[in-house]
Design a protein around this nucleic acid. Sequence first.
DNA 1: ATGAAAGCGCTAACAC
DNA 2: GTGTTAGCGCTTTCAT
Lengths: 358, 358
Amino acid sequence: MSPTDPARKVPARRLQMADIARLAGVSMSTVSRALSGSHLVNEETRTRIAELARSLNYTINLGAQNLRLQKNQTVAVVVPYDAQSRQHISDPFFLSIVGGIADALTDRGYDMLLSRVDAERLDNAAQLFHSGKAIGLIVIGQWRHHDQLNDMAAARVPLVVWGGLLPQQLYCSLGGDNVTGGRLATEHLLALGCRRVVFLGDAQLPEAGLRREGYVQALRAAGIDPDPALEVVSPFQTIAARAAMDRLCASGVAFDGVVACSDLLALQAVHAVRAAGREVPGHPQPGGGRSGVAIVGYDDMPVASFTEPPLTTVHQPVALAAVELVDALLAMLGGAAVAPRMLPVHLVVRGSAPTADA
Amino acid sequence: MSPTDPARKVPARRLQMADIARLAGVSMSTVSRALSGSHLVNEETRTRIAELARSLNYTINLGAQNLRLQKNQTVAVVVPYDAQSRQHISDPFFLSIVGGIADALTDRGYDMLLSRVDAERLDNAAQLFHSGKAIGLIVIGQWRHHDQLNDMAAARVPLVVWGGLLPQQLYCSLGGDNVTGGRLATEHLLALGCRRVVFLGDAQLPEAGLRREGYVQALRAAGIDPDPALEVVSPFQTIAARAAMDRLCASGVAFDGVVACSDLLALQAVHAVRAAGREVPGHPQPGGGRSGVAIVGYDDMPVASFTEPPLTTVHQPVALAAVELVDALLAMLGGAAVAPRMLPVHLVVRGSAPTADA
DNA sequence: ATGAAAGCGCTAACAC
DNA sequence: GTGTTAGCGCTTTCAT
């Protein structure tokens, strides 16, 4: 039952083209041609060489081939991490966009290098390009370093960024329409009778900042002045979010709605609010406001409909985004000038902030 | 507000060492030495060259360097896909293990190539090694091709596989203890009074097959014969699982518990059962069995505690697994013989199959 | 302390 | 149709 011989290792020098040539009794050039399917080489010789190579597991060394051909089919996908919290990739949104990009790149015949860089030094990712490891970069998120991304673009690093559209932007970004997303979420809460809506997220991050703009727009349109006490700063991370919401609840500041910057944050808000003895989503009160707290998430991750309560959330088109990011980068590599673009988002109404309220 | 000049492209030949040499007025050898921090080169010259390189964004071309040095720091992480269903990476479990591996590899100074291969041709992944793209492979899942993995190992491809321990195994695998996992889940349901426990998963897949072994063990130990009618074959995919469970409910076959092979499958089971008008988890009945259906998931994905009902599930140590996979591969590359190993799993009891039942 | 030259594994003129 | 040769961008003897 136990393994016969678990993976022993003997280095065994890797075969190379010269070996194949010798074994086939031809020159290297012939092997090279045969393997590339050139019609300059005799049909019979070609298949013989191909067989030989296959039977020996010989494959052209791509490092050498790339060097010679000056080509490279590798795209780097850069997922920044927060060095302080040593926070790893874990948000399902990031993970699934990475999955989608992997698929899109594979479909198009490119390799994908998955790289982590310190979110404070996004510009370190340029190294991947300058060193020739990758022909271009897809960066997931702008974090706090719009400037570094601009510098990279100015240095002609082929670059596409998942994120929002910012002033003075030199690079190509693609992302959900954050302002609209923030506005939709907030409008929905206002329509439910919420009057004191919390914004949960870190508005220092461009995406969250834009969502906050939408939030403010919606409030103002409803004649409500944004209250700084209702801004709960929290990174895209669960523990911190929970603590921040607990603090808010303990502070006694009144609120009856939450616009969260991710579904994960929304879930933390749900638990914090319930731990404080209030209901989610509660009911509108005759005097205005709500008996409980209605909560809207962001991203619409696959399990959002299975949570308790099911999350009302702003849907981001992950699969589309992945394909668009890849195509944008490839177009750019093809010499096109690719303009930044926003992808449509829409609100998905579920239980955490229902539509018709009793 | 709109971008000044979105990422225009001018090819601009990449700098190379000869350029730096010329600009610095020294020979290439000196530049090479300077950049590698050799003490053979004058302190002053060295810093001068380093500055120059930095200011011009020059980085050594790694393709060329690797060729010359015969080195490579790239590990391929292979995530198989189902070609028939064109099913993309989407299970949060796979995604998060990939995230963890990315972190572990980055920490150790390796690059990670994320590759997708047809689950029917896992052996195609060997190409990544033979072509020199990667020094070794981490394959996520055995799928239906234990044999191909064995062949790869026999061909001396450095290889570590996330998966179960199988008979006649030549490669190094690491994975949760699936038999125990399946047994724990089933024992828990039996303890709750379930007598007709469904196994939801595709036992053709080694991991699911092992879990089924545990399931059968637990049933037998309780004096229950496994009923083939209670085996619902479903891939690790949501739509199919839902349909299969709907069919089971419609068939009239009696059941009062479900052991699912992933949390996603468990959630689908919850919905199917509820759509059929039954409760999850229900209550034990005086005559044996339960009024509703108790359901246990597998993986313990991060949101499992936030679902409705919160999922009782078998916890897999994802973060640990990622690190262990990486370390196993690196040890193997270092010449060590690394034996397959199982990682501990444990049951996390939540609402979908509670502990003390009223 | 620095330079000249050979070669990592491959391809593409250019010969024949 | 096949072989010879000169590099792709780099490192490293071996000279000096």
